[in-house]
């Protein structure tokens, strides 16, 4: 069975069983190792990627569901000539990264938040992160980073 979708802007076609997880397609077929197999249960969010702009747990997301969709991973983020995107930069500036295994997923969740929400506060950030477990940081510096990136979004380019 073949499945077609765009992956970080490029059209792709994979021949795997439809129930194959999107995560294993990304890692095993395309060598994109940014999204992590943290729990394999859709609980920790380390495998978060965007499907048509929405964060999904790719470890339990059947590749068949991505048919015709736009799949974006941490490797495909566009930083518009800067070394890092705003949220990536803010995470480092605010000390939001420790072991970092959750961070590719966190980056994708917060990227979606910044792209879709016009008004972002502490509570919208916390609820958007409810599906991303970070065992290291206690979240505060990730939240600070998200707030700073949101503020920068509204500010001068």
């Amino acid at each position: 069975m073949s499945h077609s979708f765009t992956l970080n802007g490029q059209p792709v076609d994979v021949a795997v069983a439809g129930m194959t997880s999107l995560l294993s397609v990304l890692r095993d077929q395309f060598g994109l190792l940014g999204a992590k197999l943290g729990c394999g249960e859709g609980r920790c969010g380390a495998c978060t990627v965007l499907v048509d702009g929405e964060p999904v747990d790719s470890c339990i997301y059947p590749v068949a569901n991505a048919e015709g969709a736009a799949v974006r991973t941490v490797e495909g983020l566009e930083s518009h000539g800067e070394p890092l995107t705003r949220i990536q930069d803010a995470l480092l500036e605010h000390g939001g990264v420790q072991c970092g295994a959750c961070i590719p997923g966190v980056v994708m969740t917060l990227t979606a938040l910044l792209e879709t929400e016009s008004s972002i506060d502490d509570s919208t950030i916390r609820s958007s992160l409810s599906g991303n477990i970070c065992r290291c940081t206690g979240y505060q510096k990730i939240i600070d980073a998200a707030q700073a990136a949101a503020n920068a979004n509204g500010g001068p380019q």
Binding site: L32, L33, G34, A35, K36, L37, T73, V74, E75, P83, L84, Q88, D89, L91, L92, E93, G95, V97, G100, A101, I103, P104, V107
Partner: peptide, 22 residues
């Protein structure tokens, strides 16, 4: 000083290769 972590860019880019990626 609160210097940025030297391994940070790899981590936020998803480029760090962890044990589970090796």
């Amino acid at each position: 000083t609160s210097a940025r972590r030297a391994d940070g860019e790899d981590k936020v880019r998803g480029a760090a290769r962890y044990g589970m990626d090796y």
